[in-house]
Amino acid sequence: MNFSENNTTSANAAPIIELSHVDKHFGSLHVLKDISLTVKKGEVVVIIGPSGSGKSTLCRTINRLETIDSGEIRIDGTALPEEGKKLALLRSQVGMVFQSFNLFSHKTILDNVTIAPIDVLGKSKKEARAEAMDLLKRVGVDSQASKVPAQLSGGQQQRVAIARALAMHPKAILFDEPTSALDPEMIGEVLDVMTSLAKDGMTMVIVTHEMNFARRVADRIIFMDGGSILEENTPDEFFSHPQTKRAQDFLNSIQAH
C-alpha cells in the first residue's frame, strides 16, 4: 500500500502539518512554549524527550484534542477549525493511535475498523468490510476479526487501532506513545507495522521512548524539554552529536540502562 505519489520525500513536498508559534498553558503551567513545527508529506517525525516535556500535549493539539492559547495550526494548508462539522472533517483526515489503544469495547474488531468509514465517510458496509479485512490482514490480525477487544492481547489491540486509523485514508497519522502500555514482547510487532507504514510513505508524527526505532525510521528527530523544542536534527546527527546539554543528559540517562 503506497501513500505517496513518489516513493521518496522531496524537499519541495507540501507541508501536511504546520504549527506556528503555538503556546499553551494548563492553568499557570506553561506546557507549550512558542512551538513551530512543519511536517512535510511522507515525512516521519519522531518527538522524544523526558516526561512532562509536553510532547504528548503537542501531539494532541494537532487534531485539537487539546486546545491552544495562541498560534496557528494548519493541516494540508487549511487552518484547524475550532468546532463543528469542519473540525470533524479535518479530524477524519488525520489519524491517531493512542497509548491505551482505546478500541470500542462493545464492537467486534471488524466493526471497530469499519464504523468510522461507514458513519463518517459514508462508505457502504460491503466496501468498508472488504477494506477493513485487507487492513487487518496487513497488520496481521485478520483471524481475530469477529472477536471483541477484550479477547485480544495488547499488541494485537494496538495493531487493530492502527488499522482503524488507516481505514480513514488519512493524510497523516499521529502516534501518542503507542508502545508505552505494551508488554516488552509485544512492542516489536507494533513497531514492525509502524516501520512498514513509514516505508510506504505515510506521513507520521510519533511520540515515543523507543530510541532504536526512532533512529531507524525517523526522517527527523525533535527533542523537547520543558515545553520547548530544543533540538531538531536528523537521527544520525542527533544521536551521535547532541548539541544541547539537556539532550546530552537525556541520552546518557537512557543509555545507562
Binding site: 484534542l65 487539546e66 475550532e82 468546532e83 463543528g84 473540525l87
Partner: peptide, 8 residues
C-alpha cells in the same frame, strides 16, 4: 463535551 469553540 470537548472544549467549546467560540460559537459553542
Amino acid at each position: 463535551y470537548e472544549a467549546p469553540g467560540p460559537k459553542a
